[in-house]
Simulated assay, not measured.
Amino acid sequence: MNEIIWPQDYLPGFTDNFASNEVIVAGISAAQIWPLLSHPSLWPTYYANSANARFYDCKGPELAEGVGFYFETFGFPVEARCTEFVAPKEGQPGRVAWHGWAGEEGADDRLDVHHAWLIEDLPQSRVRILTQETQKGKPAQALAQTKPNPMINGHQQWLDGLVSAVREANR
């Protein structure tokens, strides 16, 4: 199976917090998942922890590499820039990632993240959806100590919502 491609400054194990969630399900494909993930305005339709997505510079509605956007999650207003965007196709996983930040650079409340997704078709009509996030800053340190981990739980809700939304659309 494939893995997330990490920028050196956000390599898991060397940041303040790391979350990894994955599901493998039968009966849906990467092509069905992709539109729901690549359009931030759709996130709140299946993931309640996302709100108010918008693009900058007349871009959108779909993410693209280098495009700036904004959304709110986990109580944070997140400014973001898409750093990787590869749609899935036969024999190639879909990849989308962004650098997101909240707070002023250098401030105690500054949070920087790299959030990446990998969507790949597997044999026997299965799909694998992997999302991982690394975080830096004092808010990330606090999140890492919180039990249960809100990042793990929140991202699992995002994965479950994606799967449920595709299954609903297939009915």
Score class of each variant (00 low, 15 high):
E105H: 13
D108W: 08
A140K: 04
A102V: 05
Q135T: 04
E90K: 03
S125D: 13
L130C: 06
V96E: 08
V78Y: 13
Q32D: 13
L37Y: 00
P150G: 07
T15V: 13
S29R: 01
G91W: 08
E90F: 08
M151L: 15
R171P: 02
P150K: 09
L159R: 01
F71V: 10
A165P: 01
A80P: 03
P77R: 14
S41F: 15
E105F: 11
T131H: 02
P139L: 00
G103S: 04
F18I: 09
G137N: 01
E3L: 09
M1I: 08
A64T: 10
L143F: 08
I152L: 15
G68N: 15
R110D: 02
R54Y: 13
A165T: 01
K147C: 12
V113D: 08
G27C: 09
D112H: 03
P12E: 12
P88L: 04
R110L: 04
G161Y: 07
P61C: 00
Q141K: 11
E168L: 07
E3Y: 05
A48H: 13
A31Q: 09
W101Y: 11
P44D: 10
N2V: 07
T83H: 09
G161N: 03
G154R: 11
Q145P: 07
W117K: 03
V25D: 02
I152R: 14
Q135H: 12
G106K: 06
Y70M: 06
F74K: 04
K136I: 08
Q141T: 04
V86D: 15
E79T: 09
Q156H: 11
L63Y: 01
T83L: 11
P35M: 13
I4W: 05
R95S: 09
T73Y: 05
A116Y: 03
A80F: 08
S50A: 13
E62H: 01
R167M: 01
D57H: 13
F69C: 12
W158M: 09
N52E: 15
R126P: 08
A116E: 03
Q135R: 12
V23N: 00
W158S: 04
Q92P: 02
N17Q: 15
W158D: 00
S50T: 06
E62M: 09
P61N: 03
G103F: 01
E22S: 12
D121I: 06
K147E: 15
Q132C: 03
N153W: 05
G106F: 09
A102F: 01
R81N: 13
S29V: 02
E120V: 00
P7H: 12
S20F: 07
W6M: 13
E22A: 08
N21D: 06
E104I: 06
G106C: 07
P150S: 10
Y70P: 01
P150L: 08
L118I: 02
C58R: 15
M151P: 00
A144M: 02
N170L: 05
V78R: 11
A51P: 00
P123N: 05
G137D: 06
A97W: 01
I152Y: 13
I24E: 11
A31T: 07
E72W: 06
A48Q: 15
A30N: 07
V163W: 00
G100C: 07
C58L: 14
P88W: 06
